[in-house]
Computed example of a mutant assay.
Amino acid sequence: MANPRAFISFDFDNNSGEKMYFSGQSVNSRTPFSIEDWSSKTALAQSTWQQIIEDKMKKCNMMIVLVGKNMSTATGVNKEIQMAIKNNVPFFGVYVDGADSSSTLPVGLARNRTISWTWEGIASAISQMMKEGKNL
């Protein structure tokens, strides 16, 4: 069976570096998932961005939300969470960039579904998402 595909949601303005680091580390971890880098590389009209992102998300088994310290300003992340809910794509959060359990979470992401960045914890969360969710 192929590894499950994960859509990565992150604050483009504040956590692009953490997203690149997370994606790079995942290749060398023993965590059973593959990341599809479907981030928009250019500015798009809002309706175009929403349709493209939603179409890409539908092709994934789950979404991983990288939760940084500036989530209150990450409107794109909030929209991606709503798309995941609408399309029954399970998701969880991973704290990055010094964020922790006292940091603001994006709307729709539960505190008990947001974990510290350890590959063991991420593997466990992925296993849980696959039990709950969308198997393509």
Rank of each mutant, 00 (worst) to 15 (best):
Q82P: 02
S101W: 09
S116D: 12
D100C: 10
T104S: 13
L109P: 04
V67M: 01
A125Y: 11
S101M: 13
N88R: 13
I115Q: 13
G121K: 07
A84K: 00
P90E: 10
T104V: 08
V65W: 01
A110I: 07
I53R: 06
N61C: 05
Q82D: 12
T73M: 04
D55P: 07
I64K: 11
R113S: 10
S116N: 15
N87G: 05
T118W: 07
K58V: 14
D55I: 14
G93K: 05
E80C: 04
V67F: 00
G121C: 05
S101Y: 11
F91K: 10
S102Y: 10
I64S: 09
T114C: 14
S101D: 15
A125S: 13
E120K: 09
I53A: 15
I126P: 03
V77K: 01
G98P: 01
V107E: 06
S102F: 03
V94T: 00
S72N: 03
S116K: 12
V96A: 04
C60T: 10
C60N: 06
G76C: 02
K56I: 07
P106C: 00
E54Q: 15
L105I: 05
T114G: 07
D97F: 05
L105E: 10
N78C: 03
V107T: 02
G93C: 10
S101V: 11
K79E: 09
F92N: 10
N61G: 09
D55G: 13
A110H: 09
S103A: 05
N87L: 02
A123T: 01
K69A: 14
N87W: 04
T114L: 07
T118D: 07
S103H: 05
V89Q: 01
K58G: 15
S72R: 06
T75I: 11
N70S: 07
M62S: 07
N61A: 14
D100H: 10
V94G: 12
M71I: 06
S116F: 13
I85N: 01
N78H: 05
T114I: 11
A99Y: 08
E80N: 02
A99K: 10
G68Y: 03
S124V: 06
E120W: 02
N78A: 12
S124L: 06
S72E: 01
E120L: 02
Q82L: 06
K69N: 08
F91H: 09
K69D: 08
